[in-house]
Design a protein around this nucleic acid. Structure first.
Length: 252
DNA sequence: AAAGGGTGCAACCGCGTAGCA
DNA sequence: CTGCTACGCGGTTGCACCCTT
């Protein structure tokens, strides 16, 4: 009898695995992960496949640094909802809960470091979020006092009414933030466009939760017997984003 | 140029929950 | 109602890269 550990691969995904996963997701949709994991022959758990898809391979993902607008929105929403990362992520198109979680973690780390060095005008935190963080001061004070009094954990700030109040007093409402984000979305090239610009054969239908079924036929021409990427000309992989650290770069 | 520490991010783990038989 | 399975979420870890000394 073989153990699960013997059967399932762990650790970083290879380019090949990514391609196989993308292929099977396009075939069967981004549900039924255990099934996909099984039929694809990837020695991964369904869970692992789902995570890889959601956090990295999903075509609607935006890569790169958070914009000031996004930073502000994360602050706002976290103040409102606490560590409900997936809920927050839904309000930031193209960002994953994992990404936001990581961002927040980094953000809070910087904050606590700044706290340790109290009167440093050029603290890393203020540098990082200098752009237009109108909401930080009050939150910092209340949050940090709660932190230091041991009432909250490192991550969990819970809901914070004060910040909402303050934003309203400042006249910077959620509507304003949304307007900025809309404006931003105009500037940022839709993923679809980027794909076509780079001569990739794929055209992804929507940014969030694409309905693959509707466009499968036109997009993917795959021989059921071969799991080869007939849809990727010249073995190109349809990403508009760059991998910085990955097994891929090492392959070349 | 090398070493060491810091940072950021991908991926795993455990738990809660929805859906189904 | 109960048990099972799969999925989703939040927390945590590991490691590659970057920066400073």
């Amino acid at each position: 009898m073989r153990t699960v550990q013997e059967e399932n691969r762990k650790g970083p995904w290879t380019e090949q695995e990514d391609m196989i996963l993308v292929n099977f997701v396009h075939l069967f949709g981004d549900r039924r992960w255990d099934f996909i994991a099984k039929v694809s022959g990837l020695n991964r758990t369904g869970k692992s496949c789902r995570l890889r898809w959601v956090n990295y391979l999903h075509p609607g993902l935006k890569r790169g640094k958070m914009t000031p607008q996004e930073e502000r929105l994360v602050l706002e929403l976290h103040a409102k909802w606490g560590n409900r990362w997936s809920k927050i992520a839904r309000k930031l198109p193209g960002r994953t809960d994992n990404e936001i979680k990581n961002y927040w973690r980094t953000h809070m780390r910087k904050k606590t470091q700044a706290k340790k060095r109290p009167v440093s005008p050029s603290s890393s935190y203020s540098n990082c979020c200098s752009s237009s963080m109108t909401t930080t001061s009050t939150q910092d004070v209340s949050f940090q006092s709660r932190m230091s009094s041991g009432k909250v954990s490192f991550y969990d700030t819970g809901g914070n009414r004060e910040i909402n109040q303050e934003t309203e007093e400042n006249g910077y409402s959620m509507d304003d933030i949304w307007k900025e984000i809309d404006h931003c979305a105009d500037i940022i090239k839709p993923v679809k466009e980027i794909y076509s610009e780079q001569s990739y054969c794929l055209s992804y239908p929507t940014l969030a939760s694409p309905s693959w079924e509707s466009s499968l036929d036109s997009i993917w021409t795959m021989d059921a017997d071969k799991t080869k990427m007939s849809c990727f000309p010249n073995d190109q992989f349809p990403f508009c984003f760059q991998r910085t650290r990955s097994p891929w770069s090492q392959v070349n």
